[in-house]
Amino acid sequence: MSRRTFRKLVNALALGLSGLATAIGLFFLGAILWTLIHSGVAGISLTLFTAMTPPPGSSGGLLNAIYGSVVMTVIGILIGGPIGMLAGTYLAEYGRTARISTVIRFVNDVLLSAPSIIIGLFVYELLVIRMGHFSAIAGAVALAIIAIPVTVRTTEDMLNLVPQGMKDASTAMGAYPWRTITSVIYPAARSGILTGLLLAVARISGETAPLLFTALNNQFWSSNIAAPMANLPVVIFQFALSPYPNWQQLAWSGALIITVSILILSIAARVVVSSLPGGNR
């Protein structure tokens, strides 16, 4: 075999394998989605959204769990979103070149990849022990802590995309930095910041580990945020590992609901970004 044929052969083999690798990745996405749809759709009905989680063997739905997940995600993003946006604003504007910003960026990146179960332990020590019991608000705080680094990062990135000329024009009109930021920079980066918030919501709404020992679970309807509250991920965890077929079916339906919502959020975030002028991430 000539050297030329050999090189061509190696090339074809390597490129073929890389195509295969991509096929493997896509296969698993497809396999997971297919399983979810196949096993989850059977349990999708009106009762799923109108009835509470049942005891073993009787029928029921996921209303309290869906409600709890929505409540905790909303509180989580209401706490974490503004803090993340303000911190991101500091990094992109006031402290752009400050030495402490380098440290904060680094710490934020570490938090971004920190295991979520550790955040759960932290909130357990911080709130659950002090309050003396598990509570929805503790769960929401854990979710907020996970949402903060995501929002910080996207806010900083998006504010950096705003052209310097716009900021200069505002400053030249005599505006203080806060006025420039709130009246010029934020509106210009609005869809980018929104994307960050959507990604943060997508990230926290599927989190299970930090809720296990903060919000815990609740078999019944509860709208008291100082008490344990049902939530989809923990219900899926408990029901899927149970030996009862009706619980397992509910777990699959819950898994389908949560995945579809998160995929819709992620795709929505991408659509928002691609509608940005000049932004095609």
Binding site: L86, A87, Y90, Y94, I100, S101, V110, L126, W178, T182
Partner: peptide
């Protein structure tokens, strides 16, 4: 205006510091 400026700047700085405190708090509580 100056007051608002200081409040806003202080708020962004506090939020940025909170990120540092979070990591410190996690380590300390563990």
């Amino acid at each position: 205006q100056r007051l608002r400026e200081r409040v806003f700047q202080g708020a962004t700085f506090a939020a940025a510091l909170l990120v540092l405190l979070l990591l410190g708090g996690v380590a300390l509580s563990l």
